[in-house]
């Protein structure tokens, strides 16, 4: 059965900062966007990008402290665009300033990390940082095909 696109909607979800909560976040995005993003591959890559950003925030800004929280807002202003806002009480790590890594070097050094930021930058069309109500907000925009 062919799914039909919905037009506009807002969603939000909050988790405690532990990696085991990433699955719930992914399931939430899947359930929220299934009527907006028709392509399974496209939806999957969007979920991947948000998962990576949440993971980075949880590990590096919150040190996996479950007493800290991370909130995701999904805004669908029109059928062609989705805005994701990750909001928390922690410092800003601007991935736009993070230089792209060379995968060949990572392989040579047998490293496991370093791929997440590159994935997010490849998947999202725009990444910006703002401050709201004393919290930092990472806003990511993605055009939908």
């Amino acid at each position: 059965m062919k799914r039909q696109k919905k037009h506009s909607m807002n969603f939000q979800y909050k988790i405690g900062c532990r990696l085991e909560n990433l699955k719930g976040m992914r399931d939430f995005i899947q359930a929220s966007l299934k009527d907006f993003v028709v392509s399974e591959v496209e939806l999957s890559e969007i979920i991947l990008a948000i998962d990576e950003m949440c993971c980075n925030r949880i590990i590096y800004e919150h040190k996996c402290d479950e007493n800290h929280s991370l909130e995701l807002h999904i805004i669908v202003p029109n059928p062609k665009k989705i805005i994701f806002e990750l909001q928390d009480k922690a410092g800003v790590f601007d991935i736009n300033k993070y230089h792209d890594i060379d995968i060949k070097n990572l392989i040579f050094e047998k490293r496991k990390g370093g791929l997440g930021v590159k994935l997010v930058k490849s998947i999202m069309d725009k990444i910006e940082y703002i401050s709201r109500d004393g919290q930092s907000v990472c806003r990511m925009t993605r055009r939908i095909n």
């Binding site: 992914r26 998962d51 990576e52 490293r111 496991k112 990390g113 370093g114 791929l115 997440g116 994935l119």
Partner: peptide
């Protein structure tokens, strides 16, 4: 069903070895 960069990194880290 799903793999994030952490999983990709595991496979990548074994290439040289």
């Amino acid at each position: 069903e799903y793999i994030s960069s952490a999983g990709l990194g595991v496979f990548m880290s074994y290439i040289e070895e």
